[in-house]
Design a protein around this nucleic acid. Structure first.
Length: 115
RNA sequence: CAACCGGGCCGGACAGCCGCGCGGGACGGUCGAAAGGCCCACCGUGAGGAAAGUCCGGGCUCCACAGGGCAAGGAUAACGGGUAACGCCCGCCGAAGGCGACUUCAGGAAAAGUGCAACAGAAAUAGUCCGCUGCGCCCGCCGCAGCAAGGGUGGAAAAGUGAGGUAAGAGCUCACUCGCCGGCUGGAGACUGUCCGGCGCUGUAAACUCUAUCCGGAGCAACACCGUGGAGGAGACGCAUGGCUGGCCCGGCCGUCUCCGGGGAGGUGGCAUGGAGCGUGCCGGCAACGGUACGACAAGAUAGAUGGCUGUCUAAGACAGAACCCGGCUUACAGACCCGAUUGCCGG
RNA sequence: GGAGUGGUACCCAAGAGGCCGAAGGGGCUCCCCUGCUAAGGGAGUAGGCGUCUAAAAAGCGCGCGAGAGUUCGAAUCUCUCCCACUCCG
């Protein structure tokens, strides 16, 4: 990924849940907040409710792929947390991408020329 | 052909584009004084039969003991073998189930001792409620004596059947049968039997216990190393310079530097091609397995690498993701294939 | 990844081989107290599911997380599985 690193620290996750803006979709929930740098940080949460390790891994990969395919349309400099819902495991992928893009638009994460 | 039994093996493949972890890395780029680091085309490689549960056995590390015995606690349990070891595997014996192939079994000791066996029943490890027989008289739903066959209760009632015997009866006696113990026979052994002798004993040790064998404890978040800052200790410097205390000086505190120090965050090692491992042939063995020759074997992350789109294969669809490493067990599981056996039917 | 603890009625729970649908408390219903309520005191009922029934009671069967096993008999003993919770950076 071009301008994105992994978001790992638990306290940043907590801050996003508490203070960030969110958008809920059928597949995932997106939290976002400006972080004051030129790179974005992406964190993915796949809770125990989704199933066993295989299902959680799959959800995480699909979310990462979703983000990768849309990354160049997004503005850099945000902390983003994506929480998987159960449809993220085995729902239709193209529909999932559309839904994700729509949520990003709602949070004003898209670059100017795209809006 | 059908049904059933046992064992083995696989559990998606191929192609295209984009993307990911690890190892290598030309030309070049970039950072740096240098050593070297980073980026990069490309190449190699990349989850399981259960990776799972963490139920056993080891390796490894630290702690304790450093020798032996006893006690406590725990584990295992027919017998013989295999193994580094095991509670695993193989063979075999016994019991139970199945027409059979075969399957299942915590399967040592109850005749060393202790405990428990509710309710029912007369009685639960020990004698008598109904009853049977004899005798007595005040002839009654009576008393005394004998009996343990029959009835009834119960999961279990003091071997079973027949005959003799008797007042009535009883392993009281006899025959056969059943079970237990000892001898003898065969076997490596558990066991066994057209044999001999003795005995007739409730069940429960997944109750205590006894017998035999084994076991020190904790775990890779173990453990080892590096370690900015901050707190602490020691020393030096300056008082030429600043701040606080003070009217001022001395002094004290803050200050600057060096060393010591246990070590939070973080990092590195542990940690990865090799292991009590796997495949094939041959030899030994009924087998588990052992020996030998040859061959193949690069996952190693640290928020944790395999995804997305498309096509072909008649169809792609189960359970499911390595986290220090091995040997097992258990549990989950769509489908495909192979081998061997049993029973039934039909045909030759 | 590793180590451990516990599942009993609507809730909190006792029971640790037979008399156990299973103590006790909360809860629920009625009464007293109060102008009314809360608190307090007293009395009482059912306890889940199925079967039988027009409906209920009584009775019967099954139920102590689930499934096997040991025993004459299991909430209790043993094994396997499921779920919840705690600790180790």
């Amino acid at each position: 990924m071009e301008h994105t690193v992994a978001l790992k620290q638990n306290h940043i996750f907590r801050r996003l849940y508490a203070r960030g803006e969110s958008a809920v979709g059928r597949f995932v929930v997106v939290y976002a907040r400006r972080n004051g740098t030129r790179t974005s940080r992406l964190g993915i949460t796949t809770g125990l409710k989704l199933g066993h390790a295989v299902d959680r891994n799959r959800a995480r990969r699909r979310i990462r792929e979703c983000y990768r395919l849309q990354e160049e349309r997004l503005k850099p400099g945000y902390d983003i947390v994506v929480v998987a819902r159960s449809a993220a495991v085995d729902g239709d992928f193209r529909e999932m991408q559309r839904s994700f893009l729509h949520q990003c638009k709602k949070l004003r994460l898209l670059k100017e020329e795209q809006t």
